Computed example of a mutant assay.
Amino acid sequence: MESPEPSFRRRLLIESLSVLAADAQTQVAWLVRYAVMADEIALDFDHAFSMAESLVTEGRLAHGVVADLQRINATLSEMSGAENADRWTRNALSSDEGWALTRQLARRVLVAEVGEWQQPLPDITVVR
């Protein structure tokens, strides 16, 4: 399968970071709008992150953001598992330290990449 164009991969990454960077109330409104669960935020990032690694070697991402992207990925991975189900609720978005850390890191990456962390949240299509 052919890899998507770099501009598409970059857009996916920026969109996923935009949702991660949003304040908890905005994240909850986004989840309600699309009738999805909080884990959709992490799933979107995971998908974009897996395609974004080549953007660094292609010179389409600042080298300084790689560590933050990896830390976001590691933090979300550490939050996974049945024993952490309470960390994946809408209420946890405003109180969990893992969500706070990923929000902070996502904001830092967005500032480095696009100059400002507040970005429009993406429209998504949910296939059920």
Rank of each mutant, 00 (worst) to 15 (best):
L13D: 07
R87V: 07
A62E: 11
T75K: 09
V65T: 13
L20Q: 11
E40R: 14
V109Q: 01
P122W: 07
D44V: 00
A29P: 00
V127T: 13
A85N: 10
A38Q: 08
G98A: 02
L110H: 09
T102E: 05
P4V: 04
A74K: 00
L101G: 04
L76A: 09
A22K: 03
D68L: 05
S50H: 12
G64Y: 05
A67W: 05
R9I: 06
T26E: 14
S80G: 09
V19L: 15
V19T: 11
P6H: 13
M37R: 13
R107K: 14
M37T: 10
Q104M: 13
S7D: 08
S95D: 07
V56I: 04
G98L: 01
P6R: 14
L12F: 07
L55F: 04
L110A: 04
A21P: 09
A74P: 01
P4S: 10
V127A: 08
V114L: 06
D68S: 11
S18K: 06
Q104L: 13
M51Y: 13
D44M: 13
H47W: 12
W88V: 02
V36E: 10
A24W: 06
I41H: 03
G64L: 00
E40A: 15
M79I: 12
L69H: 08
W30G: 05
A112M: 08
I14M: 10
T102S: 04
E116N: 14
E40M: 15
R60N: 05
T125Q: 10
M1H: 15
W117G: 00
E97S: 11
V32P: 00
D123Y: 11
S18E: 04
E5Q: 14
Q104V: 11
E15W: 03
L101Q: 09
A29K: 14
D23F: 03
L110N: 08
S7M: 04
T89S: 15
R87K: 07
F8M: 15
L20V: 10
Q119E: 12
S54L: 01
T89P: 10
S95K: 13
M1L: 14
L101I: 05
S16G: 06
L55S: 01
A22G: 03
S94G: 08
S3Q: 15
F49N: 13
F8N: 09
V32L: 12
S18N: 01
S7A: 15
L121W: 07
E113Y: 03
M1G: 14
A29W: 03
A42F: 11
M37P: 08
D68M: 03
T125H: 13
D123W: 09
S16H: 07
S54E: 13
V126K: 12
